[in-house]
Design a protein around this nucleic acid. Structure first.
Length: 653
DNA sequence: GAGCACTGC
C-alpha cells in the first residue's frame, strides 16, 4: 500500500512530542506501568500512544533486560511507526528502534524497541513459546481482533504464567485498543486495570435517515449531490460502500450527473478506492482537488483503517460491508454483503473528524442502528481454523481443543479443523487428546495453509520440489493474471501459448517459467497480461519456502518436463479438494458430496475430466471450483485409501 | 460462461 507524503512540520520533534495529549499523563502512566504486569490502554485516535509509550518505557528503564515488542496488524503500520520513533529518538532505523515484517528484518543487536506484525511475533513464538527475548509485549490495535492478535492473547498469557512458574524474568503485557471491548480485554487478562487516554478527535455531527432505505446506492447518490449543492467546495466527501463493481458504477453515475448540476455549484472529481485498484490510481485520493472543485471518494472498508485521507469533512455510511463468513460443515467461505457493526459505524464516522469537526450521514434509521451488533464478530470465529490449530500445537499448547481464546470459536469449527489436520497426517488422536506428528511439526514451519505445506513435504517423493514450490507460491499470492475486461480477446490470445490441457496449476507454472526466462521483464509482463508486482511477490515467497525446505533437509530437484509427477504430488497433497465427474456431466466434491461446477476462468472449463483437484471453492451464483488440476483416480486412492475407499465411483468404462 | 471486502505468516 502506498502512503501519502507527509507535510513536513517545522515544529521541532521534542516540541511535537510534548504537544501530544498523552504527554500530560506521562508520569502517572509510567507509575502505573512500572507496577502492573498487565494493562489495558484505551486511547482515542491521535493520543500518541503507539509512538510514545514504547519510548516512555525505554526512557524510564522499564523492561531494559530485554526487548519491547509492539505488534501491528499491518506491515505498513509497523514499518512507518518504527521510522517515526527512530526519527524521534534521532537514531538510524535498525539500531535502537527497528522493525520485523515478512521478507524484511531491520533490527540489530542494539535494537530495544521492535515494531512488528502480529503474525511475525506469532511465528517467533513457535521457536520460543515463552518469548524470552522480550520483557514487554505491546499488542496494539487489539480492537481489530485479527486472527493473529487473538492467538497472541493466549500465547502471551501462557508465556506470562509459565515464566512466573519457572522464575524467569517477568513478561509485561500491554493491550492497546480503541474504545471497544474494554471489559472483555480486562476480564481475560486477570481483571487487568484499564487506563484511559484522551485523544484529539474532533466532534462529529451524526445524521440518520427518517425512513428505512430500500436502496442504499440510490440514497448515497442523493446524499452526495445534496451535500454537493450546499457545502463549500473545499469540503471533501468519503462514501463507504461494499465493493469494486458497485463503486465503479456509482462513480460513472456521479460523473454523468455532475455535468448537469446547476451553475455555481462547482464541479466534482469522483475517485474510486479499493485494494485491487492499481497503485497509481490509489494515490490520486491523496491529491488535493483543484480549487473550487470537490473531491468525492467512493471507498470500500479499506478507508476505515488502512488508508487515511486528510480533508474529509463528510462521511456517508451505507451501513453495508462485504465480509467473509465460514461454514464449518461445508468448509466453505462465503463473501456476503451484510450490515456493519456499531463499532464499525463509529470507525467510519470518525474518518470525518481528523483535522476539524465533521459530519456523518448514516443511510439508515437510528432504530436500525440500535439493532446493529455492538462489535464485528472477531475473525477467529469466521475462518477456517486448520492453520491456527496446527500453529497452536506447534507452540506446545497441551490441550488445543480447549485453548483459552478470548472469544471461543464454535466447537464445530475446532473439531472440523482438527479432523482436517488428522486426514492430512499432521495430528493423531490417542484416546482423546490430540498430538502433533513429526510431519505436522514440519508442516507448521511453513507460513502456508496446512494442505500446501503437506504438498511441499511430499514433493521430494515425486522428485518435483522445484515445481511444487513454484506452484504453491503462485497459489498463495493474489492472482498473477491481469484480466482487463476491455481487452478480453487480447488476453485470451496472449494466454493461449501457456495454456496446459492438464489444468490451471500447470498453466500457471508455464507462465512462471516464461517469466523467469525473461528475468521478470516488465514489457513482457505487459504484453502477456501478467501482474508484475504479484509475480515479484511469488519470487519472494518461493525464496522463503526454499529456505525452510533447506533447513528441513528436503531434497530440492526438478522433474523437468515430467508433468505427471507434479500432478501426482498435487493429488496426494490436495486430496481433500477432489471432485468427480458424474454420469449427467456435473461434478460433486468428494469431501462433502456437494455439487460443484468448474469456474469459467479455468482452462479446463470446456473439458470434462473424470477427476480433478481444485484450489478453492467459491460460492456465488453457484458453487465454483477454482484453479483445477487434472488427476487420476488411482492417485487419489493411493493418497488416502481408506478415505476414498468408500467415496470413489472409479467408473472406469 | 463469472466477477472477489480487507489483512497476514
Amino acid at each position: 500500500m502506498l502512503l501519502p507524503k507527509k507535510g513536513n512540520a517545522s515544529t521541532p520533534i521534542e516540541v511535537q512530542r510534548k504537544q501530544l495529549p498523552i504527554y500530560q499523563a506521562k508520569a502517572q502512566l509510567l507509575n502505573q506501568l512500572r507496577q502492573l504486569q498487565n494493562a489495558i490502554i484505551i486511547g482515542e485516535t491521535g493520543s500518541g500512544k503507539t509512538t510514545q509509550i514504547p519510548q516512555y518505557l525505554y526512557e524510564a528503564g522499564i523492561g531494559r533486560l530485554g526487548l519491547v515488542a509492539i505488534t501491528q496488524p499491518r506491515r505498513v503500520a509497523a514499518i512507518s511507526l518504527a521510522g517515526r520513533v527512530a526519527e524521534e529518538k534521532r537514531t538510524q532505523i535498525g539500531k535502537l528502534v527497528g522493525y520485523t515484517v515478512r521478507f524484511e528484518d531491520v533490527t540489530s543487536s542494539e535494537t530495544k524497541l521492535k515494531f512488528m506484525t502480529d503474525g511475525m511475533l506469532l511465528r517467533e513464538a513457535i521457536g520460543d513459546p515463552l518469548l524470552l527475548k522480550y520483557t514487554v509485549v505491546v499488542l496494539d490495535e487489539a480492537h481489530e481482533r485479527t486472527v493473529h492478535t487473538d492467538v497472541l492473547f493466549g500465547v502471551v498469557k501462557t508465556a506470562q504464567r509459565r515464566r512466573r512458574e519457572l522464575n524467569k524474568v517477568p513478561l509485561k503485557v500491554i493491550v492497546m485498543s480503541a474504545t471497544m471491548d474494554v471489559d472483555l480485554f480486562s476480564e481475560y487478562f486477570n481483571k487487568s486495570p484499564v487506563l484511559y487516554l484522551e485523544g484529539r478527535q474532533h466532534p462529529i455531527q451524526i445524521y440518520y435517515t427518517k425512513q428505512q432505505q430500500s436502496d442504499y446506492l440510490q440514497a448515497a447518490l442523493v446524499s452526495i449531490f445534496q451535500i454537493h449543492q450546499e457545502a463549500p467546495p473545499a469540503h471533501d466527501i468519503l462514501v463507504f460502500m461494499t465493493g469494486q463493481e458497485e463503486i465503479e458504477a456509482l462513480a460513472r453515475t456521479c460523473r454523468d450527473i455532475s455535468k448537469h448540476v446547476p451553475d455555481g455549484c462547482g464541479s466534482m472529481v469522483v475517485l474510486p478506492l479499493y485494494a485491487s485498484l492499481p497503485p497509481a490510481q490509489q494515490l490520486r485520493v491523496f491529491q488535493p482537488a483543484p480549487k473550487g472543485c470537490r473531491k468525492v471518494i467512493l471507498s470500500t472498508n479499506i478507508a476505515e483503517t488502512s488508508v487515511t485521507i486528510s480533508g474529509i469533512k463528510y462521511v456517508i455510511d451505507t451501513g453495508m460491508v462485504k465480509a467473509k463468513r465460514f461454514n464449518p460443515d461445508s468448509g466453505l467461505e462465503v463473501l456476503a454483503v451484510q450490515r456493519v457493526s456499531k463499532a464499525q459505524a463509529w470507525q467510519r464516522a470518525g474518518r470525518a473528524g481528523r483535522e476539524e469537526s465533521g459530519f456523518c450521514y448514516r443511510l439508515y434509521t437510528e432504530q436500525e442502528f440500535d439493532n446493529f451488533l455492538p462489535m464485528t464478530v472477531p475473525e477467529i470465529q469466521r475462518c477456517n481454523l486448520a492453520g491456527v490449530m496446527l500453529q497452536l500445537m506447534a507452540l506446545g499448547i497441551p490441550d488445543v481443543m480447549n485453548f483459552d481464546f478470548m472469544s471461543k470459536p464454535s466447537p464445530d469449527a475446532v473439531r472440523s479443523a482438527v479432523d482436517h489436520l488428522e486426514l492430512l497426517g499432521a495430528v493423531e488422536r490417542r484416546e482423546g487428546p490430540v498430538f502433533l506428528t513429526p510431519l505436522g511439526k514440519k508442516m507448521a514451519s511453513f507460513p502456508l495453509e496446512p494442505r500446501y505445506a503437506k504438498t511441499i513435504l511430499l514433493s521430494p517423493e515425486y522428485s518435483c520440489s522445484e515445481e511444487i514450490l513454484s506452484i504453491v507460491s503462485l497459489l498463495s499470492v493474489d492472482t498473477v493474471l491481469y484480466n482487463p475486461p476491455a481487452r478480453r480477446d487480447d488476453v485470451l490470445a496472449a494466454r493461449k501459448k501457456f495454456t496446459s490441457s492438464e489444468g490451471d496449476h500447470m498453466t500457471l507454472l508455464n507462465i512462471y517459467r516464461a517469466f523467469k526466462k525473461v528475468s521478470g521483464n516488465k514489457e513482457w509482463c505487459r504484453e502477456n497480461f501478467v501482474n508484475s508486482r504479484n509475480m515479484g511477490l511469488v519470487k519472494d515467497v518461493q525464496a522463503q519456502l526454499r529456505d525452510i525446505c533447506l533447513k528441513l533437509n528436503l531434497k530440492l530437484e526438478s522433474c523437468g518436463s515430467d508433468t505427471s509427477s507434479v500432478r501426482r504430488c498435487l493429488a496426494h497433497g490436495m486430496f481433500l479438494n477432489a471432485a468427480e465427474l458424474q454420469l449427467d456431466g456435473s461434478y460433486v466434491a468428494l469431501d462433502t458430496h456437494q455439487p460443484v461446477t468448474i469456474h469459467p476462468s479455468s482452462v479446463l472449463f470446456q473439458a470434462k475430466p473424470a477427476y480433478v483437484i481444485f484450489n478453492e471453492l467459491l460460492h456465488t451464483s453457484r458453487c465454483y471450483m477454482r484453479d483445477l488440476c487434472l488427476v487420476d483416480a488411482d492417485w487419489l486412492l493411493e493418497a488416502a485409501p481408506e478415505y476414498f475407499g468408500r467415496k470413489l465411483h472409479l467408473s472406469k468404462t
